[in-house]
Simulated assay, not measured.
Amino acid sequence: MIEDELYDSGLRLRREMFGSAGAEDQVENTTELDDKLQEIVTRNCFGDIWQRAGLERHTRSLITIGMLLALGRSHELRIHINGALANGVDVLELREVMLHSYLYCGIPAAVDGIRTLDSVLAAREAGESFPS
């Protein structure tokens, strides 16, 4: 992996949002199969786009949640719900995004979103670490 300022900045942001399970554990446990993808995610997603001026992290989290709902990406949704909570998004806001999604994505997306949110909150309440 190429480590530079964007990479380091991306790793710091991943740590802030997802803890070491979503930062160091992800990049330190790469294989020849996924090492380039982890580098891209760390540098481009979190070192660059997530840190651009123009949108606060709170807003970026809400947008990301909405897009993941629309795409039906429950695994990534679970991860980004935790990241959104770390970015100051509250549970009521997350609930409203899930409910709002039914207008544009359909009831199955809203149901999946609410179920995913509920399971993340239950895991957090039980003190479980979330999957990355």
Results as ranks from 00 to 15, higher is better:
residue 73 R to P: 05
residue 101 S to L: 10
residue 61 S to Q: 02
residue 51 Q to K: 14
residue 42 T to S: 07
residue 68 L to R: 03
residue 36 K to W: 10
residue 101 S to V: 07
residue 95 R to C: 10
residue 102 Y to I: 15
residue 49 I to R: 06
residue 97 V to L: 06
residue 97 V to G: 03
residue 53 A to L: 12
residue 49 I to A: 10
residue 47 G to C: 09
residue 102 Y to N: 12
residue 93 E to K: 11
residue 81 I to M: 05
residue 59 T to K: 13
residue 99 L to T: 08
residue 68 L to H: 02
residue 42 T to V: 11
residue 58 H to M: 09
residue 79 I to R: 10
residue 85 L to E: 04
residue 95 R to W: 04
residue 36 K to S: 11
residue 83 G to E: 01
residue 90 D to T: 10
residue 61 S to K: 01
residue 63 I to Y: 02
residue 100 H to S: 11
residue 89 V to D: 03
residue 61 S to H: 03
residue 85 L to K: 05
residue 94 L to K: 03
residue 69 L to G: 04
residue 91 V to Q: 09
residue 35 D to T: 08
residue 70 A to L: 10
residue 93 E to N: 07
residue 33 L to K: 13
residue 33 L to W: 12
residue 74 S to I: 14
residue 38 Q to M: 13
residue 93 E to P: 06
residue 64 T to P: 00
residue 70 A to R: 06
residue 83 G to A: 06
residue 59 T to A: 13
residue 35 D to A: 12
residue 61 S to I: 04
residue 70 A to F: 01
residue 37 L to V: 12
residue 84 A to Q: 00
residue 93 E to H: 04
residue 101 S to P: 07
residue 74 S to R: 15
residue 40 I to E: 00
residue 68 L to E: 00
residue 55 L to R: 04
residue 99 L to F: 14
residue 92 L to Q: 14
residue 70 A to N: 04
residue 54 G to M: 07
residue 77 L to E: 00
residue 62 L to D: 01
residue 95 R to N: 09
residue 54 G to V: 07
residue 42 T to E: 01
residue 98 M to R: 06
residue 71 L to C: 11
residue 70 A to K: 07
residue 50 W to F: 11
residue 73 R to M: 14
residue 57 R to M: 08
residue 84 A to Y: 01
residue 86 A to M: 09
residue 52 R to Y: 06
residue 102 Y to F: 15
residue 40 I to F: 11
residue 50 W to Q: 02
residue 82 N to V: 11
residue 60 R to Q: 05
residue 87 N to H: 11
residue 86 A to C: 10
residue 79 I to L: 14
residue 67 M to I: 15
residue 91 V to M: 06
residue 39 E to A: 13
residue 83 G to Y: 01
residue 66 G to H: 05
residue 67 M to R: 08
residue 48 D to M: 08
residue 77 L to A: 02
residue 99 L to K: 11
residue 39 E to Q: 14
residue 48 D to P: 05
residue 41 V to G: 01
residue 75 H to P: 09
residue 75 H to N: 15
residue 36 K to A: 13
residue 99 L to G: 05
residue 71 L to G: 09
residue 44 N to Y: 06
residue 94 L to E: 02
residue 87 N to M: 08
residue 99 L to M: 15
residue 38 Q to W: 06
residue 102 Y to M: 15
residue 58 H to T: 08
residue 89 V to Y: 03
residue 66 G to W: 07
residue 37 L to C: 07
residue 97 V to I: 12
residue 93 E to F: 01
residue 50 W to H: 03
residue 62 L to W: 01
residue 87 N to G: 09
residue 93 E to Q: 13
residue 36 K to M: 13
residue 66 G to D: 02
residue 95 R to G: 04
residue 76 E to T: 12
residue 102 Y to G: 12
residue 48 D to Y: 11
residue 60 R to G: 04
residue 47 G to F: 04
residue 58 H to I: 07
residue 39 E to K: 13
residue 64 T to E: 00
residue 76 E to W: 08
residue 51 Q to T: 12
residue 45 C to Y: 02
residue 77 L to I: 06
residue 102 Y to E: 10
residue 82 N to T: 09
residue 73 R to K: 15
residue 57 R to W: 08
residue 55 L to E: 02
residue 75 H to F: 15
residue 42 T to I: 11
residue 95 R to Y: 02
residue 65 I to Q: 00
